[in-house]
Design a protein around this nucleic acid. Structure first.
Length: 422
RNA sequence: GGGAGGGUGGCCGAGCGGACGAAGGCGUCGGUCUUGAAAACCGAUGGCGGGGCGACCCGCCCGUGGGUUCGAAUCCCACCCCUCCCGCCA
């Protein structure tokens, strides 16, 4: 949510920022709705003040006097009865428009529509020189016995997977690997609820914008989260935090559910894009002036995690067209996937400034008043894609995969090399 | 799932149609006193929004949303949440 008062004070700044995201069209409408709301507010509050004054006197009045006063009180009450619904409508309209406006992009974000417009900041690590035609994760995973896609399709449909044996151990090793590194940097591990109320989805900015991507339960009005960002951000909903308690850092492990509507035909092979996967996420609540620095910290942890797995990657500054509604700026780490012959997103971190905090009413107590905190989120490890990247990058001619040393402490002793069966 | 009782300020807790943003206590912060501290005493202590250049003024908030009423923390309805008992259950 943008700051309505700030929009009033400097509409042109918002017009410019929103225009970069193709969302400036609603601004004039918003300003006139706001004008109407304020006019009505002034009138309604005058009437209420009068009613309160008269009502206080009424309490002291004698029974005879009361009879005389009821008529004038009723006329005030009647006018309020007419105006209050108008005021409520105006407020709801302002709210509805405001809720749809995305966060302003940071000046350093490149303009653009698709991932081809993202700015590549750096490439790190050498792509593996395999000396043979690389197999993709489906061929490798099936041979190793780490996954079953056909039976998953029979059970649940396309874009689902049974992880089996070696890939299960690998995923659990990745979990410990990610948690160890995140907690060593001060992030508290959390296993959050994955079914959440509408307010949590709204508060994090996934509703109303991304409704088509979200699974909803039929009888309970609960939403399945697409990322633990949602319950982590909601952890301090409605709270006023003490400045000395910030930053608050959490790392959540959860399953993530995504409908992938509109992705028909995209990444249909294997488990690169699935409806359900597990992910370790980092989430920070910080003082407003610290969010830029925190964003760099989260990115550096992500680079450490990806780099530590021996995966070649590049860092991109995501363009305006690819930003989520709540983000002012987003870095993606794209790992090299030999099976696809290109870089693909494997982690992502966003600075959402005060956008989510304003919706969730998470504030910090300050001398000069309570202000929304800033929130940030970033992937520690997205399990399915990371498993894919590992097996594709560390594959060997015979179809075996040498797992990176950084995972050895977390793996069963006989599983440092994944071998094709039979 | 069945039954019972509850949700009031940072916390505890009174209020159960009219002067209530709400008694009292605790906590916190100032002050008096003291060599210092404690105790005692005095005072201050919520959030959100609107208006005004401003000192300020006004409105809203007693789980949430509706309703009754000239007037609702208080009465009615729906929903949410918590606690206890029974049943079921990882």
């Amino acid at each position: 949510m943008l700051d309505l008062k700030a929009i009033r004070d400097d509409p042109e700044a918002f017009r410019l920022g929103l225009a970069r995201r193709g969302a400036a069209g609603e601004l004039d409408g918003l300003l006139s709705l706001d004008e109407r709301w304020r006019t009505l507010t002034v009138r309604v509050e005058e009437l209420r003040a009068e009613q309160n004054r008269a009502s206080r006197e009424f309490g002291r009045a004698s029974p005879e006097e009361r009879e005389n006063r009821i008529a004038s009180l009723r006329s005030v009450s009647d006018e309020l009865g007419r105006l209050e619904p108008e005021l409520a409508d105006a407020a709801a309209e302002v709210e509805a428009v405001l809720a749809r406006l995305p966060n302003l992009p940071d000046p350093s974000v490149p303009d653009g529509e698709t991932d081809e417009d993202n700015a590549v900041l750096r490439e790190v690590g050498d792509r593996p020189e395999l000396g043979f035609e690389p197999r993709d994760h489906v061929d490798l995973g099936l041979a190793i016995g780490g996954m079953d896609l056909e039976r998953a399709a029979r059970t649940s449909g396309s874009r689902f997977v049974y992880l089996l044996g070696p890939f299960v151990w690998l995923q659990l090793a990745l979990l410990r690997y990610a948690l160890d590194r995140a907690t060593s940097r001060g992030f508290l591990p959390v296993i959050p609820p994955v079914l959440v109320r509408e307010e949590a989805m709204y508060g994090t900015g996934f509703l109303p914008t991304d409704e088509a991507q979200i699974y909803v339960t039929r009888d309970d009005d609960l939403y399945l989260v697409g990322t633990s960002e949602v319950p982590l951000a909601s952890l301090h909903q409605g709270e006023i935090l003490e400045e000395g308690d910030l930053p608050l850092r959490y790392t959540g492990y959860s399953t993530c559910f995504r409908r992938e509507a509109g992705a028909h035909g995209k990444d249909t092979r294997g488990m690169f894009r699935v409806h359900q996967f597990d992910k370790v996420e980092m989430f920070s609540f910080v003082r407003p002036e610290d969010s830029g620095e925190e964003h760099d910290l989260i990115l550096s942890i992500e680079e450490e995690l990806v780099g530590g797995l021996g995966l070649p990657y590049r860092v991109v500054n995501v363009c305006t067209g690819e930003l989520g509604a709540s983000a002012t700026k987003k870095y993606d780490i794209e790992a090299w996937f030999p099976g696809q012959g290109r870089y693909r997103e494997i982690t992502s971190c966003s600075n959402t400034t005060d956008y989510q905090a304003r919706r969730l009413e998470t504030r910090v107590r300050r001398e000069d008043g309570n202000r929304p905190v800033h929130t940030l989120n970033g992937t520690a490890v997205a399990m399915s894609r990371t498993i894919i990247a590992i097996v594709e990058n560390h594959q060997r001619q015979d179809g075996s995969v040498a797992l990176p040393e950084s995972l050895h402490p977390y793996l069963p002793d006989d599983l440092r090399i994944l071998r094709p069966r039979g």
